[in-house]
Simulated assay, not measured.
Amino acid sequence: MSDSSPPVFDPNPPHRNFYGRRHGKTLRQSQKGYLSEDLGELRPRGITLEDNPDRHPIDPETFFGDDRPLWLEVGFGGGEHMVHMAATYPDIGIIGCEPYINGVAMLLGKIRAAGVENVSVHPGDARDLMDVLPDASIARAFLMYPDPWPKLRHHRRRFVTPEHLQPLARVMAPGGIFRVASDIPDYIRQTREEVPPAGFEMIADTDQAWDDWTRTRYEQKALREGRAPHYVTFRRL
């Protein structure tokens, strides 16, 4: 039987490598405007070493000014799913993490278009956010079409490894839901193997999307290229 107890808060996390892209094609002028005009207001405080050098846990109410349930999306890509969930569930607050600045710019444009106000954007590594979130502060988490890192020697870079899953388990509330979507069979295999030992139980494993799902640009690409999406749901023990 796996140990479902989350690790304790670590105020001094170890140095970690980052392997993904931070920049892509040159941003359009409108996207540069989103970053300069909108990101500062949506960016949570207390995440970086510059504004939280002692790595104190941050108060969850600082995100939206109240005690609403908090959801977390890890690697929101172009932001389609995050904005859809924010619009569908206006009484919750969604925190999105994405180090790829082009994706951040795309999300900010979608936030403007949709007019949603219950979003917070961390333009960086989700591990930095989880370092300072209090225990059991996240009610629901999403991992939608993560970077597959297809080469065997790179599998340790995937999010569904203990380095990421143990901090996620710590910040998730008991009974909290963790959703994973991918079109890569081996990623789903590793998800099934690695997530339960971190303190979760699998409650759904299917090729049928969730009722409140919206198709993302990555899923559309997968379908065009003949890859079948898969959806797995876990509950925090």
Rank of each mutant, 00 (worst) to 15 (best):
D3E: 11
D3P: 03
F9N: 03
F9G: 05
F9S: 03
R22T: 11
K25A: 12
T26Y: 00
T26W: 01
L27V: 00
L27D: 00
Q31D: 10
L35P: 07
E37F: 07
E37G: 04
P44S: 01
I47W: 06
N52V: 10
I58W: 01
L70D: 09
E80A: 06
A86H: 07
I92E: 07
I94V: 15
I94R: 08
C97F: 14
C97D: 14
M106F: 07
V119R: 01
V121N: 01
A126H: 06
D131F: 02
V132M: 04
V132K: 04
P134E: 00
P134F: 02
F142Q: 03
P148Y: 02
L152P: 04
L152K: 13
L152Q: 09
H154W: 09
R157G: 06
E163F: 15
L165I: 15
M172G: 13
G176R: 11
R179S: 10
S182T: 10
I184Y: 00
D186A: 00
P196A: 04
P197W: 04
G199I: 14
E201H: 14
D211E: 14
D212G: 09
R215F: 01
R217V: 12
Y218F: 14
Y218I: 08
E225D: 14
R227P: 05
P229G: 15
